[in-house]
């Protein structure tokens, strides 16, 4: 169970951060469908930084510092990459979906091209570090402490630094968007930009701010995904995490708390698919009640084996859950009114 919760936290963090990225862009009125592409690009730039800085002995001994530097670089490059989207969507008033799709295509192409040219490989791996004294250290682990209480184990044992940074960022950004002047202005640009402009808010600047924050967060999330979930392999794809994050954002109704709950739920169900055998099947089958049921009831045994011991059933659960919840809550969902519409000063 503790293992399952640890994995949930690791899996949910990239989703949470990237869904938050989507929220920032959409609250400012830009549909950021390019999350996937920005994640790939951020992950790649972070992995490149790790690769080159690893050649300096100082950084090999200071893994955690290197990890944070890579996260920063990933965020910066993600922000820079998202400028392509904001330029086309804000200055040239292009269709935001087209721009986003183009970036989604561009990011894997660019990253794979550079990887191929520089390393003659199709993917870039960040191996677990071997320090100069010969001891192996897992990249980015914050603590490796087995003798904590269960709650402590979930949060601090085998946890990555990115988890804590992400939680900190989450609190900071929720505060930013709800409790500060800038946040209010940003949200107003997503609801009614003309009204916002009429009280002296620079809509274009607010939208640039929204997409840039979004890009930085998506780059951060991309690197967090590659370094934690994907075992340090950047190969020009993040397994559709950007699109998942968009779904989580809608699931969370464009609100930080909803997004956090949604990503935790999704992460939990997704990790259940990996560990269902250990965490669900074995405890269940060890109970007397279940044993007698399985031994006596032939039909139940068949159904049980066909469905509940089936890997694909558990792979299906997270997606079906999100679909069902969306179907029942879509009446209440409240997207920002002006998202996807290029800002036109003259429009009423």
């Amino acid at each position: 169970m503790i293992f399952l919760l640890q994995k949930t936290l690791i899996f949910a963090i990239p989703l949470l951060i990237v869904a938050l990225a989507g929220m920032f862009a959409e609250r400012s009125g830009i549909i950021n469908i390019a999350l996937d592409g920005i994640m790939i690009f951020g992950a790649f730039s972070g992995a490149m930084t790790a690769f080159y800085l690893r050649q300096i002995p100082y950084f090999v001994d200071h893994n955690q510092l290197l990890f944070v530097i890579c996260l920063l670089i990933a965020a910066i490059f993600g922000a820079l990459f998202s400028l392509l989207l904001s330029f086309s969507a804000i200055n040239l008033k292009a269709d935001q979906t087209i721009g986003g799709t183009a970036l989604n295509l561009l990011a894997p192409a660019v990253t794979l091209l550079i990887t191929k040219v520089l390393f003659n490989k199709d993917k870039l791996e960040m191996e677990t570090a071997t320090a100069t004294d010969g001891s192996r250290k897992d990249f980015g682990y914050a603590l490796l402490n087995g003798d904590l209480n269960p709650v402590g184990q979930v949060f601090f044992d085998k946890a990555y630094i990115s988890t804590f940074i992400a939680i900190f960022m989450f609190i900071l950004l929720s505060f930013l968007i709800y409790k500060t002047k800038t946040g209010l202005r940003l949200r107003s640009c997503g609801e009614h930009p003309q009204a916002a402009a009429s009280v002296g808010i620079n809509v274009n600047r607010m939208r640039y701010l929204g997409t840039t924050i979004s890009g930085a967060l998506a780059g951060f999330g991309g690197y967090a995904y590659v370094a934690t979930v994907a075992n340090g392999t950047a190969e020009g794809t993040v397994a559709g995490m950007g699109f998942l994050a968009l779904a989580i954002m809608i699931f969370g109704n464009w609100k930080p708390v909803g997004i956090a709950l949604g990503s935790l739920l999704f992460g939990f169900l997704k990790c259940l698919a990996v560990t269902y055998n250990k965490s669900l099947i074995k405890p269940l089958e060890s109970t007397e009640w279940m044993k007698s049921l399985l031994a006596n009831n032939e039909t139940f045994n068949h159904i049980y084996t066909a469905i509940f011991k089936n890997m694909y059933f558990y792979n299906l659960i997270p997606f079906v859950t999100v679909l069902i919840v969306l179907a029942f809550t879509s009446k209440k969902s409240r997207a920002p009114k002006a998202e996807g519409i290029p800002y036109d000063k003259g429009a009423r």
Partner: peptide, 20 residues
């Protein structure tokens, strides 16, 4: 290498967005 072609497609789509 083979990724040049996807790069070309991506750039074409990106600039197609500017048509308006």
């Amino acid at each position: 290498n083979e990724y040049v072609s996807s790069l070309i497609i991506a750039v074409i789509i990106y600039f197609a967005g500017f048509s308006k």
